Computed example of a mutant assay.
Amino acid sequence: MRNKGVLMVNLGSPDSTDPKDVKKYLGEFLMDERVIDVPKWARTLLVKGIILNTRPKQSAKAYKKIWWEEGSPLIVLSERLREKVDEMTGVPVEVAMRYGSGTIKEGLQKLHDQGVNEVFLIPLYPQFAMATTETILVLAEELRREHFPDMSFTTMPPFYNHPDYIRVLAESIKEKLYHVDYEHLLFSYHGVPERHIRKSDITKSHCKIDGSCCKSPSPAHQYCYRHQCFETTRLVAQYLELKEDTYSTSFQSRLGFDPWLQPYTDRTIEKMGKKGIKNMTIVTPAFVSDCLETLEEIAMEGEEIFHEVGGKEFTTIPCLNDRQDWVKVLSRWIDEWAIVDTKTAIA
C-alpha cells in the first residue's frame, strides 16, 4: 500500500511589506524563466538591473494597502483553505508556495514526514499557463528527483471547464449580482505575453491569436491559457444565462512593452465608463485566492479608473478563497483520487 497525500500550490507572497522582503520575493518570481522567458543574460539585466531598482518600493506600498493583521491575504486564505479541506478528506493535505516562504520542497517534506509517498499535486490555478501551472510542475518534479525519489506524483489537470468549478464560481457571482444593479460584468484574467500562448501550442500552428483560433477545436486547447480563459467566461455566462452584451473578458497585470493578451483590463474599465456605464461588476477567475492583483490592482486601482471616467458603482466579487462549496468540491476531488485514478475522478 502506498500512503497518499495532497500538496496544493499557490503563487506566494513577500514575508512582509518591507521593501527588502518585497525585493527578495520579486527577484525570485521575475527570474523564473517561465515568467520572463528571455535568455538568462537578458532576464538578469532586466530584472536585477532595472526592475529591482524601482519596483520593490512601489510594490511595497501596494502590499501595505491590502496587508492583513494576520499577514499576506493570499497566504492566510490559502492556509484557511488547507485547514478546511484537510478536515474533510481522508488523506493529509499541505499547502505550498511557488515563490517565497512555505516552499514546495517544505510542503513535500511535511508529507514525507507523515509517511506519504504518493502525492496529488494541485496547482491552485483553474487555467493552464507557463508562468503558473507549468513552473510549479517542473520545479516539483526536479525536487522529487533530487530529494524524494521514492515519491510519485499525480497532477490535477486544469479545471477551468469542470462543471463543479463552473457551478461554484457562477454561484459566487450570482450571490453578488443579486445585491447590485449592475450593467456590465467583466471577467478579468491575469495577463500573459502573447508569445507564451504560441510557445504552449503543441501543434505549433493553431494559436494565431486572431479572434477565431480559440473557438476552433484543437489539441492546442489543452495548454492554451487564452482559450481556457474565454471558455471559463462562456460556461459561467451560460450557467447564469447572461445576455451577450452584458459581459466581456479582459486581461490585467501586463509588464514591459511586448504584446500581451488583449483587451487590457484597465483600458476596458476606462472604455466602459466613457460609454456611459454607471454600474460595473468585476470578477477575477484566474485566481482562487484573493491577492495583490485582486485586492489592490482591481478593487482599488480599477475602481479609481472607473470613477475618473464617470462611473458610479464598482463592485468586485471575491475569489473562491475558502468558500464552503469550493472546499467541498476540492475535498471530493481529493477523496475520489485517493480511491480511483484521478483522470476518472475529475474528468
Rank of each mutant, 00 (worst) to 15 (best):
R267Q: 14
G273C: 06
F257W: 14
I282G: 00
M272K: 12
S248G: 13
M280T: 14
R254Q: 14
P263M: 09
I269P: 03
R254G: 08
E297R: 06
K278I: 01
G311Q: 04
Y264P: 08
K278R: 13
C229Y: 00
V288Y: 01
R234I: 01
D258T: 14
P318E: 06
P259R: 05
S248H: 03
G302N: 09
Y247F: 15
T315N: 11
I277L: 14
Y264A: 10
L235H: 00
E308N: 13
V236M: 04
P285I: 00
S248N: 08
K312W: 03
S250K: 04
G276W: 05
P285F: 00
N321F: 11
E313K: 11
I305M: 00
R323M: 11
G311M: 04
I317S: 06
K271G: 11
K274M: 11
K278Q: 11
Q324V: 12
M280F: 14
K278H: 05
E313P: 01
D258H: 08
E241A: 15
S253T: 10
F287M: 07
R234A: 06
D266L: 13
E241W: 12
Y247A: 06
S253M: 09
A299P: 02
T284G: 01
E231W: 02
N321S: 08
S289H: 03
H307W: 10
S248A: 11
A237L: 05
Q252Y: 09
F314Y: 15
E296W: 03
E293A: 03
T316P: 07
D290H: 05
G302F: 11
E297Y: 07
H307K: 15
W260H: 07
L255R: 00
G302I: 10
W260I: 02
T233N: 13
S289D: 01
Y264M: 08
I269D: 02
T316I: 09
L240I: 04
K274L: 13
L255E: 01
P263Q: 09
I269G: 01
T233R: 12
Y225V: 02
E244W: 04
P259K: 05
M272A: 12
E313W: 07
E297Q: 10
D322I: 06
M280C: 12
F251R: 07
K274G: 03
R267K: 15
E296P: 06
D266H: 15
S250T: 11
V283A: 09
F314A: 09
T284S: 12
I317A: 05
Q252A: 08
M300S: 02
S248V: 08
E270F: 09
Q262C: 12
E270R: 15
E308D: 15
P263A: 09
R234Y: 02
V236E: 06
D258Y: 09
T294A: 05
E304M: 11
I269R: 02
D266G: 10
P318D: 08
E270K: 15
E244S: 13
L292T: 04
G276S: 04
T284V: 05
T233G: 08
M300Y: 09
F251D: 08
T249E: 01
L242Y: 03
L235D: 00
L240V: 06
L292N: 03
R226A: 10
I317E: 04
Q324H: 11
S248K: 03
E301C: 04
F287D: 07
F251A: 10
Q238S: 15
L240R: 06
K271N: 13
E270G: 13
G310M: 06
I298Q: 03
F251P: 10
I317H: 06
Y239A: 07
L261H: 03
